[in-house]
Simulated assay, not measured.
Amino acid sequence: MLEQLISYVIVVTVLAMVPGADMMIIMKNTLALSRSAGRVTLAGIIAGHLFWLVISVVGLAVIIAGSPLLFNAIKYAGALYLIYIGVQSMRAGVLVPRQSLEHIDTLSAPVSRKSLQQSFRQGFVANLLNPKVLILYMTIIPQFVAGSAETALGYNQQIVLLALILIGISIIWFLLVVELVNLLKRWMKSYVFQNWLSKGAGLIIILFGLRTIFFG
C-alpha cells in the first residue's frame, strides 16, 4: 500500500507540474492583476476539482464518461472557453495595467472584487470543462485504489484520500507558480515586452483549446 501511495504521489506531482491551461490562466491573472488574483484563480480550480471528486464518488463520472454526447459537450465547451480567454488576453495588449505598475515595488496592486470574482470563475469553469480532469478521476486515480486485503479503507474513502492528495500537491505547486510569476512583475515595465507576452500567453491558451478540440 505504501509503495503504491508513493508511486501515486510521484505520478500526480508530475501531472500537476506539466504546463497546461490551468497554469496559464493562473499566470495570466497573476500578471494582469495581482498575487491575490492568482490565488483566487487557484481557488476556482480547486473548487472544480472538488466538484469532480463529488461526481466521482457518487458515480456520475462513470455515466458522463460512458456517454459520448455528454463527454463531448464538456470537451467542446471547455475548449471554446479556453479560446475565449486566450482571445481576451491577446486583445488586452498588456498584462500589467499602468495603474498596477505603480505598485510593482511592493508587489501588491489593488484589485476590485469584480476582478477577483472573474478570476475565480475563470479557474472554476476552465477546470470544470476540462475533459482531462474527468479522465484523471476516471482512469488514473482508480488505478491506485488498493484491494480490500491491503487496506481497511473502502473504495470511495480511498478515492477521496487520493483526490485530496492530488489537490494538496496542486495547491503547493500553483502557489509557488503564483509567487514566482508575481516576482516577474519587477521586469514588466516594458510595454513592448508586455504586449508580446500578453499575445503569447493568449496564443498558448488558444492552442490548448484547439488541441482539446482536435486531439481530445
Rank of each mutant, 00 (worst) to 15 (best):
62 V>M: 12
142 P>Y: 08
163 A>Q: 03
179 E>W: 09
175 L>T: 14
186 R>Y: 07
44 G>S: 15
50 L>G: 03
69 L>D: 09
138 M>R: 01
126 A>I: 10
137 Y>T: 02
45 I>E: 10
169 I>R: 07
170 S>N: 11
5 L>Q: 02
137 Y>S: 11
136 L>A: 07
101 L>V: 03
31 L>T: 01
184 L>V: 00
4 Q>T: 15
61 A>V: 13
20 G>L: 07
33 L>H: 04
135 I>F: 14
74 I>T: 06
71 F>M: 12
110 P>I: 09
86 G>R: 01
37 A>L: 02
127 N>Y: 01
112 S>M: 10
52 W>S: 01
181 V>W: 00
12 V>Q: 03
4 Q>V: 12
122 Q>L: 09
11 V>E: 04
80 L>G: 05
149 A>Q: 12
66 G>R: 08
21 A>C: 06
112 S>F: 04
115 S>Y: 01
121 R>Y: 05
60 L>I: 14
70 L>M: 14
8 Y>N: 10
183 L>M: 01
200 G>N: 08
47 A>W: 12
213 I>L: 14
9 V>Y: 03
186 R>V: 05
212 T>A: 13
29 N>V: 05
206 I>A: 10
180 L>A: 14
33 L>G: 05
31 L>I: 05
28 K>S: 11
130 N>I: 12
140 I>A: 12
105 D>E: 14
38 G>F: 10
197 L>F: 09
112 S>G: 15
154 G>E: 06
191 Y>D: 09
147 G>T: 13
173 W>F: 11
202 G>I: 12
207 L>E: 06
121 R>A: 15
105 D>T: 08
128 L>R: 04
213 I>W: 05
150 E>Y: 05
165 I>Y: 02
89 S>H: 05
115 S>T: 07
154 G>N: 14
149 A>Y: 06
69 L>S: 07
86 G>I: 03
102 E>H: 03
